[in-house]
């Protein structure tokens, strides 16, 4: 780059951000890896849990409410159900957040809070329902 054109670029670019900061990919939030990593961890957990859940639902097709309740009350099923809904809603909220970050420009904060709040409430509804069947 010639000295003259470098000056021209410097004159046009007024960004208070170092090249190191850009290379590290850290914005104002100073995070990103955590989100990516937890999305993967929850995905791995959901591989066996989803298989277990679908097989369980198939075995419950003819069950009435007391039978479902009894099934959910067995400790192994209670624990796996809890793990499934916790992993599902955590993974869901992380994934939807990426979609929101990509497409929602207006009211980004409001939609983000709606996403987190809805996932938390749906998760809590599920957890309470499972525990109610167990105890």
């Amino acid at each position: 780059m010639s000295e003259k054109s470098a000056e021209a670029v410097a004159d046009r670019v007024r960004v208070m951000r170092s090249q190191l900061g850009r290379a590290r990919g850290l914005g104002a939030s100073k995070s990103g890896v955590e989100h990516w990593w937890v999305e993967r961890v929850t995905a791995i957990a959901l591989v066996p849990l989803t298989i277990w859940f679908i097989v369980s639902v198939l075995t419950l097709l003819h069950s009435d409410q007391p039978e479902v309740r009894q099934w959910a009350g067995r400790p192994v099923n209670t624990v796996l159900l809890l793990a499934t809904v916790i992993m599902t809603f955590h993974h869901m909220q992380l994934g939807l957040q990426v979609v929101i970050d990509d497409y929602v420009k207006k009211s980004h904060l409001a939609v983000t809070l709606l996403n987190k709040g809805a996932a938390l409430l749906l998760g809590l509804f599920s957890i309470v329902a499972i525990l109610k069947m167990a105890f």
Partner: peptide
Amino acid sequence: SIAISAGTLLLVWWLVAAASG
């Protein structure tokens, strides 16, 4: 992913109903 997210409403409804009666 968005379709499954919407479908979780059905899952929650099913769990809550099974716990309710």
